[in-house]
Write a protein that binds this DNA or RNA. Structure first.
Length: 507
RNA sequence: GAUCCCGUAGCUCAGCUGGUAGAGCAUUUGACUUUUAAUCAAAGGGUCUUGGGUUCGAGUCCCAACGGGGUCACCA
């Protein structure tokens, strides 16, 4: 039996106890179960790509490494599959080559990580494999991993049996998910590429990537409930940022003419398929530009991202084909109301809007503000129709306390939101840089807040001082990265595009 | 937060109107030197999420809690 140490030791099941015994047996045989390195020369995928039946000796010495995923023992020969970051490759192990070590192979398990030196060949059944000359244990695994069998038919279609599918376990133990369902890595690789293409797009144009505080004494730049934390040395409460907007604008005041940040934001609200308490947003601000310019830039940026990451200008999401070909549709908000409700809602009073909502069978709280009613009608009757990328422009000023008033359209601001597949993906405006107007708008917000809406913004005096120093005309844009990734990777839950989605603690 | 569904072996799942647990893979032992969801033979493995209740008897029925998923509400 294994001597259990005095350190905290979890309950072990029979399989785990057996693996511990194997570990000790291997040690007693002089095998280091956790050596420091291995000189890996080839990825599985590289071998599968480079092997040629015309020159079978070309890959005469390869060093591969990975996790044992399948074991087929046939007496004095065995076939294993190992999995590395590029895929799987079969290893052929023969007693003739490994001698005494072959007999200790029973101490190796699915889940162990090994290194193999050998030559590449094609088996009688046609599978490109590595014929092992030497085998090295690189990491002994003490816990069984989910084993999903797969069958590949003549056409190359893969059928999975007993795939590791429990969503809770997949999210809580993402490492097991990544091992057992390696295809999900594609989503995360694409996520990284989406961000890297965007970063390059901005960098090439001379805009500076910056970092601004996550811990903020006042939260602003959006309407949302924040997380609160406490700084002991200062003995003050701080908020985890809900947006970085107000800090990026301070940098524009400071003289940078283009800044962006890929920002983890935190919102203390409900969780569902499209909301995780922490999420990633891109925000970018460019001086001397307005929202029309920003629409062009957004279009070009997203078109570039889609072409580089997906390879085409169209993306299949669920059953819908989304076209990112330029130009995207542009429509004024109140024109869309007319298009989808048959009504002109512009300039209507709260009571008139309430009546309109009733006529349109949109249920709203009778006490709701005019803006809430407009918002509700939009999300019920307009938004679901915005499937192909659509810029919705010119919002009511009350909905947009940080956006610049439209010069010719009274009551509206220079703002757009980009909708794709019925969801908001981007939000942008010509930034309000009139300090008097900005102060009034924030004071309005503060009043709404005092009336009980804890999502309304507060007056950030330091921000207002910055604007009073003078911010040049500036266009700003925010893009919800997680939702963009969902669209481009055909995932309908944010939990599938975030490695470690927020979960309730177990037990 | 409201509502519906789910929680059985390491994984994927059965378990009918209540009679104290089953399969496949994984694991163990044996056979097999080009197999591939390898095959063949045998074996071990479960306080049925937790706590109450009804009952002679609960995985199964009832209540509550915990965890997950879906829908709605709030929001990006």
């Amino acid at each position: 039996m294994v001597s259990l140490s005095t350190m905290t030791e979890p309950q072990r099941n029979d399989q785990e106890l057996r693996r511990l015994e194997e570990l000790h047996l291997l040690r007693s045989m002089g095998v280091d179960p956790y050596p420091t390195s291995f000189n890996k020369t080839h990825d599985a995928a590289t071998i599968l790509r480079d092997f040629s039946d015309d020159a079978p000796d070309a890959l005469n010495t390869v060093h591969v490494a990975g996790r044992i995923m399948t074991v087929r023992r046939m007496g004095k020969a065995s076939f294993w599959h190992i999995q590395d970051h590029s895929g799987r490759i079969q290893i052929y192990l023969k007693k003739d080559d490994l001698g005494e070590q072959y007999d200790s192979l029973k101490l190796y398990d699915i889940g162990d990580i090994i290194g193999v030196e050998g030559f590449v060949f094609r088996t009688r059944m046609g599978e490109i494999s590595v014929h092992a000359r030497t085998l090295t244990l690189l990491t002994k695994s003490l816990r069984p991993i989910p084993v999903a069998k797969e069958e590949t038919d003549e056409q190359g279609n893969v059928t999975r049996y007993d795939a590791f599918a429990d969503k809770e376990l997949r999210y809580r133990r993402r490492y097991l998910d990544l091992i057992a369902n390696p295809h999900i890595k594609d989503t995360f690789v694409k996520r990284a590429r989406i961000i890297s293409v965007m970063r390059r797009f901005f960098d090439e144009r001379g805009w500076l990537e910056v970092e601004t505080p996550i811990l903020q004494p006042l939260y602003g730049g959006a309407t949302a409930r924040p997380f609160v934390t406490h700084h002991n040395a200062l003995d003050v409460d701080l908020y985890l940022r809900i947006a970085d907007e107000l800090y990026l604008k301070r940098l524009i005041v400071g003289g940078f003419e283009g800044v962006y940040e890929i920002s983890k934001n935190f919102r203390n609200e409900g969780m569902d398929k499209t909301h995780n308490p922490e999420y990633t947003a891109l925000e970018i601000y460019v001086a001397y530009k307005d929202y029309v310019w920003m629409m062009d830039m957004t279009e070009e940026c997203l078109n570039t991202v889609v072409r580089e990451v997906v390879g085409t200008e169209t993306v299949l999401f669920q059953d819908v084909e989304l076209s990112f070909a330029r130009p995207f549709r542009r429509a004024k908000m109140f024109d869309l109301y007319r298009e989808h409700t048959g009504k002109d809602l512009r300039g209507l009073s709260r009571e008139e809007l309430l009546a309109a909502a009733k006529e349109l069978h949109v249920g709203v709280d009778p006490k709701a503000s005019a803006m809430k009613i407009l918002d509700e009608i939009f999300s019920v009757l307009v938004q679901p129709h915005l499937i192909q990328p659509t810029f919705v422009t010119d919002y009511p000023v009350e909905m947009s306390p940080l956006a610049k008033a439209h010069p010719t359209e009274a009551g509206l601001v220079e703002r757009f939101e980009l909708f794709i597949n019925g969801n908001e993906v981007a939000n942008a405006f010509s930034e309000l840089n009139d300090p008097i107007d900005q102060r009034e708008r924030l004071e309005d917000q503060a009043r709404i807040r005092a009336d009980g809406d804890d999502e309304a913004m507060s007056v950030d005096e330091d921000f207002l001082q910055a604007i009073e120093v003078g911010m040049p005309p500036t266009a700003g844009l925010g893009i919800g990265i997680d939702r963009l990734v969902m669209l481009l990777t055909n995932n309908d839950s944010i939990r599938d595009v975030v490695f470690f989605p927020q979960m309730r603690p177990e037990h």
